[in-house]
């Protein structure tokens, strides 16, 4: 049981990602991390995986609209979103089949319950054995909760990813946190996708999957595709 990111050059270089892997994606603001996260989730849907996206930055409906915007053929019965935003905006939206509402990004207990419910549903009722969990982003959660709290939460859920043979992607905003925070959180992950600002735009590389990091690649996001150059 292995996974691919859906980012072609990186996938070629790092090969198949083994099940149970937890990946931190870290990069500067406005570098396209939301798109990249959704593209990785979409690759999972193409590979007949289930995808669970925890959205702490925008309402769950906006995440679904991203897939609609690019006319992607999304199997709705295999996608679940934990929406940590809508209810903090004062809307009393009920849970739907695809979107479960958490009270707020502070409510890690509630977020954890919703993630577990989606995992149970996909495993027990849909008999799906490959699931991707994308948390976008940890930085928002860190705004409301201290490092220790978030570490404890991640300690549990990175373990659950391993137990479920799933793939975990966790997004962090570079520059928002001190070095100690990043170093502490890194302990929990098996690999990283690093993003930096290059001379002609943004660059990315993968770290921790091969003995040496991959080279830095300039990239462009074209709709639901990432084009790597160099």
């Amino acid at each position: 049981m292995t996974y691919k990111l859906g980012i072609s050059r990186l996938d070629e270089l790092i090969g198949d990602i083994k099940s149970g892997t937890n990946i931190m994606m870290i990069g500067p603001p406005i570098s396209g991390k939301d798109d990249i996260t959704n593209i990785i989730a979409y690759q999972g849907l193409l590979d007949a995986n289930a995808a669970v996206i925890v959205s702490t930055r925008e309402p769950g409906n906006n995440v679904l609209e991203w897939f609609e915007r690019y006319n992607l053929d999304v199997p709705m019965d295999r996608i679940g979103i934990v929406d940590c935003v809508t209810r903090t905006l004062g809307f009393g939206a009920p849970d739907t089949d695809n979107i479960k509402m958490a009270s707020s990004p502070v409510d890690l207990t509630g977020i954890g319950v919703k993630i577990s419910q989606f995992f149970e549903h996909f495993w027990m009722e849909m008999h799906l054995r490959e699931t991707r969990l994308c948390i976008n982003s940890l930085s928002t959660i860190l705004m409301y909760s201290n490092l220790q709290t978030v570490f404890r939460f991640l300690h549990v859920f990175t373990g659950r990813i391993k137990a479920a043979n799933a793939l975990g992607i966790y997004v962090i905003e570079e520059g928002m946190h001190d070095e100690r925070t990043i170093v502490t959180l890194k302990q929990l992950f098996d690999g990283m996708i690093e993003i930096r600002e290059g001379e002609e735009g943004y660059q990315m590389r993968a770290v921790g999957f091969t003995p040496k990091p991959t080279p830095w690649f300039d990239y462009e996001i074209d709709g639901a595709n990432i084009v790597l150059r160099g």
């Binding site: 209810r87 009393g92 009270s103 502070v106 509630g110």
Partner: peptide, 14 residues
């Protein structure tokens, strides 16, 4: 401690 009060009331109603 982790939910707004009006939301708590909604949760009870649910």
């Amino acid at each position: 401690s982790s939910t707004e009060p009006h939301r708590i009331r909604e949760q009870f109603n649910e």
